[in-house]
Design a protein around this nucleic acid. Structure first.
Lengths: 213, 213
DNA sequence: TGTACATCAGTGAACGCGCGTTCACTGATGTAC
DNA sequence: TGTACATCAGTGAACGCGCGTTCACTGATGTAC
């Protein structure tokens, strides 16, 4: 319990009329709302309440509720890529190790942010036709495809080359399937392992997707 | 346009006071509602309207809205298994061909019923602790695990044997990832192929999950 | 440095709506005798 | 075969609620001169 007896998310000092960075605060509050209520129970008023702001305030930054969800998904894809990069930075430079690190990061992100992952991959509410979200999602795909190509040595675009398509589809599907099942709590015998053992298992499984040339 | 000028889902003859099989009608209407509105826009009143029945009627059969969603997911898992069996029946008896057919059926079901698939695998609203749904979901997993074991020749339970766990996790994740991505319209270069070519590609990809002994 | 003014960001009341659920009811069906 | 009665299945009105959005407003900030 907070010793002042105040709820921890209420500012002690009188908050200035202007917030400073309400957009970011609202995105953080939106993520918390997603975690708590799921996409199905997500509401603009709930987000505003979490942010400690009147329920009409978000409109100034995101337009309507779908605008906020689109922004949340966009930031989600950016973090998704960043998480994969983090794992790659700690891995050997060799293409295979880099691809494995990407896959582990893919799955780790989903397990760390299951509600956000669902918004990004399992909801129709964000506007994927909006340029920001469209580009962020495409960037994640392109990044994975590039790392697959580095391993196979096949630089042809998947849309033109059947082998390239199969390689990238297999890798993506394997990572995505593990991510989705583990985020949902399916596969408990894998998800319940301690993190290091789990990541080792994931690397072993992901290795089946593509073979080096 | 219907030549009688009547909406096709309105009965011509006065409907008797008792419906006969309202439970099934409501499940069908629920699936249509899912397809149209998604899980996020799903409402009991919408389902009742589709079924041509007062909005209080569903309570007699399913209790509340979550009861209906749980029943929908349960029937979904039963159909999911049945669809895989259909593909297996048309395949060679050899274990590898049977497993491939299961995977193709897994993906086909998801592409044919994307909204239902999402309810089954991507929503927290159905009550997975209810015996009916719990058993139906477990049966689907057990079925897949059995076919994986038939291919690998490893009969140890995945919870005890690491190799068995990796094999079943890899197969499930690969099928599930393809299903989820294709159902969502991601992977258009694969999803856009004509059905026969698509299934051939899926078989090729699924084959990477496990190796025969 | 001061002042007028435009713009921006957040407020709080109000709106209309669709929702899930409850409730007393009524029509239909099944069963006991 | 008839009748009384219990049970079942569906109705329609009513409830209270939380929602997204609109709106006139006000406090704060930035800028031109």
């Amino acid at each position: 319990m907070d010793p002042t007896g105040q709820p921890p998310d209420v500012a002690r000092a009188p908050r200035p009329y202007h917030h400073g960075d309400l957009a970011t605060t609202l995105l953080d509050a939106g993520e918390a709302e997603l975690v708590d209520k799921g996409i199905e129970g997500f509401s603009l008023r709930g987000v505003a309440k979490r942010a400690g702001v009147s329920h009409a305030a978000p409109a100034h930054h995101f337009g309507d509720v779908d605008g906020l969800l689109t922004a949340l998904a966009t930031r989600g894809f950016e973090r998704f890529l960043a998480r994969q990069e983090e794992f790659r930075r700690q891995a050997r430079r060799e293409p295979r190790a880099q691809l494995e690190a990407s896959g582990v990061g893919y799955v780790a992100f989903a397990m760390e942010n299951p509600a956000l992952f669902r918004l990004m991959f399992g909801s129709r509410r964000p506007d994927f036709a909006s340029p920001g979200l469209g580009l962020a999602a495409q960037a994640a795909f392109d990044d994975l495809a590039r790392h697959v190509a580095d391993v196979t040595g096949n630089a042809n675009p998947p849309s033109k080359d059947r082998a390239a398509l199969h390689d990238v589809a297999a890798t993506w599907a394997l990572a995505h399937g593990l991510a989705d099942l583990l985020a949902a709590g399916r596969l408990p015998s894998l998800g319940g392992l301690p993190p290091r053992a789990r990541n080792r298992a994931i690397v072993g499984i992901l290795g089946r997707a593509v073979r080096s040339p």
